[in-house]
Each structure stands twice: as structure tokens, then as C-alpha cells.
């Protein structure tokens, strides 16, 4: 069972966002494996431990991604590919195109990834890759069972669980609750230093940067108005309850 994991590095979820020259500043930021991708890495390793095979981590991003890739290798992934050529960076379309190109050179039975990344949060790349590769796709898995050439997935849909089945190879994305990612052991960390990590550029992949140019453009980044200090409602309890629900609906827009 050869498994590919699409993985991205993101800010630690606790980081504050600071803008500098109209960009999100990366200064002094703690980087982590995108938590949803981390579930995918864990799941891939668990499946490999049971069924054998190899886990390959595939990433597209700047050099700093290497630290997270090493973490994934320390957890138990076998090798990694990092496309770190800035000419190939773009939007979700670009990423999907490049990753699909990388994947086409690999032998694989299963591709895993997080259903969304906690930084950009657009959740497009795995679907796009599935479309390009023309293989089955299942998202937000909370349970994955591989049985020979078949895979059964429990998919979370707003609280309901769909039980889906498809043939391999397929792409499956993980939802929180799929597993508890492991903490890398020291021998794992040491071995990870020696595991192969291939850096690929546009020319290695024989991709012309023009062909993967972003289809969308960011024109502005801004911070939301500072979160106001909490508001303690006052008045009759009944009035407060009414006000609260209205606030949640109209102001906070969460109902």
C-alpha cells in the first residue's frame, strides 16, 4: 500500500496575525503541520504499519516547509517531495496542477490530505487534484478502512455520518476526529534526518510556470476590527435572552 500525503505547513493556530506591508508577517511565527494534514499523515502511517508499503509526503511551498516535513518523516513517513520553486507558487489552481504533476510520477494506491488548511481555509486542492487525476474523492473522513483494493470511509456531514465505499486509488481528506496524531519518537526524529527529501523545481517537473499561473488575485488583506471586550448584557433576564439571540443572529452572524 503506497500512500501519498498532501501536506502543508501553517501557522500555529495560536499565532496572532500581524500585517506588514500589506502582507501577513511571518516574523517570529511558530509553524506547524496543518492540523488536518497531520491527521492525514497519522492515518497514512497507521495504514502503512498495518498493511506495509510506503508513505510519501508531498508539499508545495517555501523552504521553511522542510521543518514540518521532517516532523512528518519523524512520525513515520518514509520519504518526501517538496516543490519549493517560487515560480510555481500561486493559488489553489496552481498548487493542484503542480501536485498532480508530481503525483503522476509516483506509484500510489491512496492519497490522503487534510480537508482544509487552517491558514487559507479554502479547501480546494484535494478535489482539484482528484479531478485532474480522474480518481474517486471522499472528503471529511472520520474513519478509514482499507480492504485490499477497496476503501470504506465514514464521512462527517454536518453531524450525520455517511458510509462510503470506493475502489483504490482514491483521494480521501481527513476531518478532526479521524485519529490522534502521534508525537515523534527520538529515534524517529534521528531517522528522519536521513530519510530522502527531494526538492523539485519547475524544470525538474517540466512545467512551464505560465501554465500554472494563479487564476485569482489577492488585492487586499486586512484585519478585522479589534474584538471588542465582551459585552455583559443587562436588563430583565427575558430581555437579555432576546437581545442575545438577536446579537448572535445579526451581529455575530453565527445563528
Amino acid at each position: 500500500m503506497n500512500i501519498l500525503v498532501l501536506m502543508k505547513q501553517t501557522f500555529d493556530t495560536e499565532e496572532k496575525i500581524v500585517l506588514e506591508d500589506g502582507k501577513v508577517s511571518e516574523e517570529g511565527v511558530e509553524f506547524i503541520i496543518n492540523p488536518y494534514d497531520e491527521y492525514a499523515v497519522e492515518e497514512a502511517i497507521t495504514i502503512k504499519e498495518e498493511l506495509g508499503g510506503e508513505v510519501t509526503v508531498i508539499s508545495l511551498g517555501p523552504d521553511r516547509f522542510e521543518s514540518s516535513i521532517r516532523t512528518a518523516l519523524a512520525m513515520g513517513a518514509d520519504k518526501a517531495i517538496l516543490v519549493d520553486d517560487p515560480d510555481l507558487f500561486g493559488d489553489e489552481y496552481s498548487v493542484a496542477k503542480v501536485l498532480a504533476k508530481v503525483i503522476q510520477d509516483q506509484s500510489f494506491d491512496l492519497i490522503l490530505g487534510g480537508y482544509v488548511a487552517v491558514d487559507n481555509g479554502s479547501g480546494q486542492v484535494p478535489q482539484r487534484v482528484a479531478e485532474i487525476l480522474n480518481i474517486p474523492f471522499i472528503s471529511t473522513a472520520v474513519k478509514i478502512e482499507v480492504d485490499n483494493s477497496k476503501v470504506t470511509v465514514h464521512r462527517d456531514v454536518e453531524g450525520d455520518t455517511e458510509i462510503l465505499e470506493t475502489n483504490l486509488p482514491a483521494i480521501i481528506t481527513s476531518q478532526q476526529g479521524l485519529n490522534d496524531p502521534r508525537y515523534p519518537s527520538l529515534p524517529g526524529i534521528m531517522k528522519a534526518k536521513k530519510k530522502p527529501l527531494k526538492h523539485l523545481s519547475a524544470s525538474d517537473l517540466e512545467i512551464s510556470p505560465e501554465s500554472v499561473q494563479a487564476k485569482t488575485e489577492e488585492i487586499d488583506i486586512f484585519l478585522p476590527p479589534k474584538k471588542e471586550a465582551g459585552r455583559i448584557l443587562s436588563g430583565e433576564l427575558g430581555e437579555q435572552a432576546k437581545e442575545l439571540i438577536e446579537l448572535l443572529h445579526n451581529e455575530a452572524k453565527v445563528l
Binding site: P181, R182, Y183, S185, G188
Partner: peptide, 12 residues
């Protein structure tokens, strides 16, 4: 922890 990387999720 160090050799096996086995611990409860709270510890991780």
C-alpha cells in the same frame, strides 16, 4: 515517550 513515541493524547 522518547523511544516509542507512545503516550496518551493529553500528553502529546
Amino acid at each position: 515517550v522518547l523511544t516509542m513515541g507512545e503516550m496518551r493524547p493529553e500528553v502529546t
